[in-house]
Nucleic acid binder design. Structure first.
Lengths: 342, 342
DNA sequence: ATGAAAGCGCTAACAG
DNA sequence: CTGTTAGCGCTTTCAT
């Protein structure tokens, strides 16, 4: 490994016949001016030596790392990234940060796992800020945000407010669920089932709240046996759907609180010979890219997934640069997209 | 931001009444021994001051960063992570690395984008090694591996050999495709369509080679109009399937070279009233978790996705630690899993 | 506008 | 077994 022969600032300084300070000024365009002539010489030397500043030396000296950590709590090796929710959000975060010269370190944390690895990262001086996604899990939920807070790092949470002091990017899930449910009711459905995600997630709660509110508003009774919690996965949604359809009085519509689960429900229904939407109507949640290309195309609640990621990225960057963030909680709107399943 | 008051090694040394060297020995368990008594005192001081070593100072001094970069070429913000192929692999890489005390920086690179951002990372001294996934794209394909090579960093490529010098983790895609196709032929199918991925990917090539070989072996004619390239996406696979079934003599079986595409094909088929496998048989490729829970469960070629990631992780780690890697190309076996779609 | 030099926090070689 | 100290490569203050 030929790491030893990398050119340093000093090499550049010698070749350009200037001091290392000037090299620094040229590389960083400041904080002090340099004469055009000197600047030219330095640039030439940099080119000639293929000089690249050392990020760690820079970070050590300037106390700035240009790196943020994305802490993924409740990490599931097999499907965390495959989900149509977290995947696009993560991509968008990476996109925003990379574009602005920041690096992203992904730090997973499984439920029940010791937080030592996270603490090590937080205190290692390797990151300037943190993006986190919190789950309402009593074990760690109260613990992790406190750790981050104590680290003094800039932090923004997505999906729900992780700590009163952290800026958060959230979506109006309850309103979305109300819109989805009301839409179904308007179409004449009265027996509506709910296939919900993991109730430890704030979004699952909010979406269920919206569902219940809309049903109550319309004076409709909710059959509690028609409410399922499927951990956001299409697999479990398939089972729930079949259980639902085997009931003496099956639902005429199913509201799935994620597109992944809606995909599963549609798969089971279509295979078992039901027509969508004639026999059973489906509404999803998220508006994954695939939703509009499914057959039939899925009616769903659009969440600005990309926007969540880019906003989270720009907010950490702002927080790192010491800018005040107001309002502390950014609520992104959500919108019902009517397509072919209702 | 209360970063200034973080305890340093020196603070610990003073409190424990030892030198900084000893603190270092205790923290790193070496390279030289310390007496139990001193060790205890140091540990107590560390605890008391909530001391955490600074990663950048460490990296700067020891020339070791404990970080690896995952370079994602052909990055697509909306679906790179959502894919049932790259998602699990990425998760597994993160899992392996995190478990062994390494951090992972994800560095995306879009097709046609300037490689400056990647070069900056490679030369920044922020990473000890690189994992990369190469696409056979003439523009950058010849360029990127050279850059990495010149950086002198440890590198392993996945999916195909990125450079003759790089260790690679690959799968026996051609054999898998042969198995899938032969299986279909054994079931009596003669008009078999191929829905393939993006031909710029090595895996797409290999899988098509296997398909053609198996067909030739059985003396079967391939109808070139029945070969589609769908960029690995279920969306495009839906269109291809419908085009296929609208032909005067539609295929009786479709081999999809990814499960994502198989999901799309199944969706279109089932919705349009075809029975799987009676009217049309389907074979996928990858064995995503969902494949076995679909209805009907998908017959597919199992790729050890998790193993690809953990092996890639352990190989970069080995390369970073200077261990020789032999053989340079690790070919992982692949296996046909017969389920309900054939 | 530039140079000299003091560290940032750590590891490891050198010296007991 | 432990202390002293020289840097790792950079930014920035203090000089000029």
């Amino acid at each position: 490994v030929a790491r030893g022969k990398r050119a340093t600032q000093r090499d550049v300084a010698e070749l350009a016949k200037v001091s290392t300070a000037v090299v620094s000024y040229v590389v960083n365009n400041g904080p002090r001016p340099t004469s055009p002539e000197v600047r030219r010489r330095v640039l030439a030397a940099i080119e000639a030596l293929d000089y690249h500043p050392n990020g760690f030396a820079r970070g050590l000296r300037a106390q700035r790392t240009n790196t943020v950590a994305f802490i993924l709590y409740d990490f599931h090796p097999l499907d965390s990234f495959t989900s149509h929710y977290l995947g696009p959000i993560t991509s968008a975060i990476i996109g925003d940060l990379t574009e602005h010269g920041y690096y992203l370190i992904i730090q997973p944390l499984k439920v029940g796992e010791d937080t030592a690895s996270v603490e090590r990262l937080l205190h290692s001086g390797r990151v300037d800020g943190v993006i986190m996604r919190m789950v309402q899990d009593p074990d760690t939920a109260d613990h992790l945000p406190g750790l981050i807070r104590d680290s003094g790092l800039a932090c923004v949470s997505i999906e729900r407010q992780g700590h009163p002091d952290f800026p958060a990017v959230v979506t109006d899930d309850e309103a979305g669920a109300v819109a989805a449910t009301s839409h179904l009711i308007e179409r004449g459905h009265r027996r509506i089932a709910l296939i919900n995600g993991d109730p430890r997630f704030h979004t699952a709660h909010a979406r269920e709240r919206g569902f219940r509110a809309a049903m109550a508003e319309a004076g409709l009774e909710i059959d509690e046996a028609m409410i399922f919690y499927c951990n956001w996965s299409s697999t479990e949604a398939i089972d729930a759907t079949r259980t639902l359809m085997a009931m003496p009085e099956p639902p005429t519509a199913i509201f799935c609180t994620s597109d992944d689960m809606a995909f599963g429900a549609m798969n089971a229904l279509t295979f078992d010979g039901y027509r969508i939407p004639d026999d059973v109507a489906i509404v999803g949640f998220d508006d994954a890219v695939q939703a509009q290309h499914l057959i039939p195309a899925l009616t769903t609640v659009r969440i600005p997934l990309t926007r969540i990621g880019t906003l989270a990225g720009s907010l950490v960057r702002a927080a790192i640069e010491g800018q005040p963030i107001d309002p502390i909680q950014q609520v992104l709107p959500v919108e019902l997209v009517e397509r072919g399943t209702t």
